[in-house]
Amino acid sequence: MLGRRLEIICAGFGGQGVMLMGQLLAYAGMRCGLQVTWMPSYGPEQRGGTANCTVVISEGDIASPIVARPHVAVVMNPPSFEKFEPRVMPHGVLLVNSSMVGDLSERTDIDVFYIPAVEVAGSLGDEHTANMVMAGALLSATGALPLEAVVEEMGHNISGSKTHLIEPNRRALRAGYGLIPADTRHPLYFKVAAS
């Protein structure tokens, strides 16, 4: 049996860090003892073009890494909103980077969170960490993985000349997590031992 699983699509402009956001979730999921897959859209993508990745986190083996209708979508820019807002599964979660996406979702069958990710990241000192603000909000709104597991994972995945970026990214992640009101926070989706 395939077991309980969570399917997430992260989408945005190339350069907004959506691939990295997805990879971070995959790494952290693996370290929590779960099965994970990460599948990028690949093509003639470049900075400014659109990019997305699909992350599946599961208690059991993952058969298909290909997902048409995700449980969760993070949209960082208008084209991604247009493409993925209609695809989120009923009862799913949509996280919108409201700093760049002006549209409001008309769907009533999903939970939508509007996150001013660029402003929040900017107020912390680096707009480039907007992706981590969104990732933090995702953890809080979906319970996909324990916040501390992802905070910890960041230390494993940023290395060499980039270690100075670990702390700003961690701050952004925590700030994003805190943006979701405590009463709408989702309990942990999987039974995992927090690292």
Binding site: Q23, Q35, V36, W38, I66
Partner: peptide
């Protein structure tokens, strides 16, 4: 195939 080449998995 392209999926197996590009995807990540443990």
């Amino acid at each position: 195939d392209g999926v197996l080449g590009q995807m990540m998995e443990p």
